[in-house]
Design a protein around this nucleic acid. Structure first.
Lengths: 81, 81
DNA sequence: CACCATTTGTTCGTATGTATG
DNA sequence: GCATACATACGAACAAATGGT
């Protein structure tokens, strides 16, 4: 993914929007790329990637499982397993 | 304030709870201590203090104004000025 | 059982940007 | 221009959970 530092939107907002699109388009169905994978894809730092994901978690779109990964939350599933 | 590293709660959770109490008790009425003041009071880093405040912002309890400070949101006031 | 690789979660210190006065 | 204060980002470290060897 390309992050544009010149954009009016902050990188973490851009990445969140990008992931939102990849999810709603069906490109990502269950398991999201790991944090480290996303840092490499984007060139962003881990903290910034984490922050973008935090937005999706707040939106109830994604759930995370320590040691496992980050998953697209299924419809009608509790936010926290 | 005292942050207990041995506590089960994370420091940012402890601080958020502490500020919530100081607000609901009426000890803090409008202007909160600045981020730097809170870092000194608590011994936490700026990022961690910011994170605790972010919780209160999400709860609609606090609003921030760059260059001004952080304020207790009045009832019936929009979250973002 | 122990060990280890992977992954998420938190924190730190610092730097830079932006808004206010 | 300058000082204050919030906002974002970076890189690094450490912990905890999971799953496989």
């Amino acid at each position: 993914m390309k992050i544009d530092p010149e954009s009016a939107d902050y990188p973490y907002v851009q990445l969140a929007a990008h992931l939102r699109r990849r999810i709603s388009s069906g490109e990502i169905t269950s398991l999201l790329p790991s944090l480290t994978a996303l840092t490499q894809e984007t060139g962003l730092s881990m903290g910034t990637v984490r922050r973008a994901v935090a937005l999706l978690i707040d939106e109830g779109l994604v759930v995370t499982v320590p040691g496992r990964g980050m998953f697209v939350r299924e419809r009608g599933t509790p936010r926290q397993s």
